[in-house]
């Protein structure tokens, strides 16, 4: 420690001595400056030297372009500096041994040898014609079949949709009515099958009315079919729908013989059912209180079934009617 202190003291003494002369100070500062400059420059030059040696200068500045890739921009030459020369290549025809320009070779061959595009086209056309003669009839038929098929399936799909929609609403409706009167429910259910719009002309007025509460029902001028969309279908106006319903009422009044009779029967039967039930209830007092509903139900069902037989009976009306039968008895 003492040695270092001594040397520091010695240095300080030397320094004071040196600095005491002003010209020395200038010289010393210049010397120091040169020294610093050398060091800084060493750093810079070393940087440059290293980048060159490691090749990173190539990355920084890029490798100078090779002259051969320079784009030539002179009139009459392409970008590679080549003259645009048009060489017409000649092909020797194997048939007649004449030299023909390449672009004319195909046509020449066609004429010279009777081969080529046109002749093959003619041949294929001939084949196609002969095969067509054989298959004209069947081809036309099959086309028609396809059309029919398509339209049929389309129709079916529509109808199916329709029916589904009707059935759903029907069921909910009949469930509502079950509480009121059994016969009405039965009646409704049995018509569900005939309610499809395709059957419209054959339907009774009641069914038509019921149908018109669910669909638009305007008869189109082109297809003479009912519009089966909802009541608010955009294709027809409310006026058209009103007209349709007014028409229905008019026809109803016009040839009311059968339909009115039918309706009358219906209403009468409802009343009849009620009367029957009343009567049965009275009888039940004499027999037993439990068996009465079943009895009444059976009577109503038989009456409705017989009525159904009178009107056109169709398809599954019976089965589903039986289904209705049981809730009726429970409702009672």
């Amino acid at each position: 420690m003492s040695g270092i202190d001594e040397r520091v003291d010695e240095l300080n003494k030397k320094f004071l001595e040196f600095v005491s002369k002003p010209e020395n100070v200038d010289a010393a500062s210049k010397e120091i400056y040169e020294d610093l400059l050398d060091e800084v420059m060493m750093g810079f030059v070393f940087d440059v030297h290293r980048t060159v040696k490691t090749g990173s200068s190539d990355v920084e500045e890029g490798i100078p372009d090779d002259e051969s890739y320079a784009i030539v921009d002179l009139p009459g030459l392409d970008v590679f500096g080549q003259q645009a020369i048009k060489k017409s290549q000649d092909c020797a025809c194997p048939n007649c041994d004449r030299g023909v320009a390449a672009c004319r070779f195909a046509t020449h061959l066609e004429k010279c040898m009777g081969m080529g595009r046109n002749s093959s086209r003619i041949a294929s056309r001939r084949i196609a014609n002969s095969s067509k003669d054989l298959s004209t009839l069947s081809g036309v038929l099959s086309d028609d079949d396809d059309d029919v098929d398509w339209s049929l399936t389309n129709d079916k799909r529509k109808r199916r949709k329709d029916r589904n929609g009707l059935k759903k609403s029907k069921q909910s409706k009949s469930v509502h009515r079950n509480g009121d009167t059994g016969s009405a429910g039965g009646e409704n259910n049995h018509t569900s099958n005939e309610n499809s719009p395709s059957n419209y002309e054959n339907m009774s007025v009641e069914d038509k009315r019921a149908l018109l509460t669910q669909i638009c029902g305007v008869v189109s001028e082109h297809t003479k079919k009912l519009c089966t969309r909802s009541m608010r279908c955009p294709q027809h106006t409310d006026d058209q729908r009103k007209d349709m319903r007014a028409n229905l009422e008019a026809t109803n009044n016009g040839h009311s013989n059968q339909d009115n009779l039918h309706v009358d029967v219906d209403t009468y039967e409802e009343g009849d059912g009620q009367n029957l039930r009343d009567a049965l209830a009275r009888w039940d007092l004499e027999v037993s209180s439990h068996s009465s509903p079943a009895d009444s139900a059976s009577t109503t069902s038989t009456s409705s079934s017989s009525r159904k037989r009178d009107s056109k009976s169709k398809g599954k009306g019976k089965g589903s009617k039986r289904d209705r039968g049981s809730p009726i008895s429970q409702g009672d």
Binding site: L11, F15, D35
Partner: peptide, 15 residues
């Protein structure tokens, strides 16, 4: 061996 003022600067840390 550099001059005294140089050493002095290095010692103080100004360099």
């Amino acid at each position: 061996m550099k001059s005294a003022p140089h050493q002095r600067l290095v010692m103080v840390g100004d360099r």
